[in-house]
Amino acid sequence: MTQLALVIDLNVCVGCHACVTSCKEWNTSGQAGPMFDDNPYGQDPTGTFFNRVQTYEIGEFPNTETVHFPKSCLHCEDAPCVPVCPTGASFKRTEDGIVLVDYDKCIGCKYCSWACPYGAREFDEQQKVMKKCTLCVDRIYDQSLPPAERRPACVMSCPTSARLFGDVHDPDSEVSIAIRERGGYQLMPEWGTKPANHYLPRRKTRKVIHEDELVRSDNPLRKEEIESEHSRAPTLDDWLM
């Protein structure tokens, strides 16, 4: 069974919010109607967003690290928001595991948002229905787009390729390999929601230099007849000849 999901690499996310704006742009122009903005150019602007980038500081100065943390619907495999919906407007697609809201069936009771521990759902104050990340379901299956563009808007826009998209149930997919080989993890695993989206942790890239690497073992100093501490040592040529 297919389970489409995002894998977000926290090691390369630079917190530029490009995914936030491209998500808003794509989904507010879509067939499901605009995502409402209240007072967008005035005081206290607020609006509906499916994706946000947050920033956390880990550690204590001076040993701190800044983590930029994009958060959208995690398309849980055991989505707690789906069974609580009294109308069936909130559903999880069997064919690809995307959790969606049928805006024509939603009565706007907000109960599903209470049942999401991640705060992934947002109520549209104008349409009076609950909305959430659709994983760009109106884009990823669009046959009129070139195959390379059949990906969510946030994935397309990410300048550092911090966002990967694919089927986490296919062991050979790019996302499954990334999860397996780069320590992919889920958010709040304690609730048993089994989020489909995974995060890749921060990594330290360290180069280890050994003592003998500082002195060239083929010792060009002797060839160039420069006298030094090492110029009498055997060279690679001595072994080969």
């Binding site: 919010h17 206290d44 607020t46 947050q54 956390y56 500081e57 695993p189 304690e190 995060y199 942790p201």
Partner: peptide, 22 residues
């Protein structure tokens, strides 16, 4: 567990917006 980082000292510096949301 919310952001999946095992460190005793984690502070949020920005929630990603200033005008409030749902």
């Amino acid at each position: 567990s919310a952001i999946g980082v095992r460190h005793p000292r984690i502070q949020q510096k920005a929630m990603g917006f200033m005008g409030g949301s749902y």
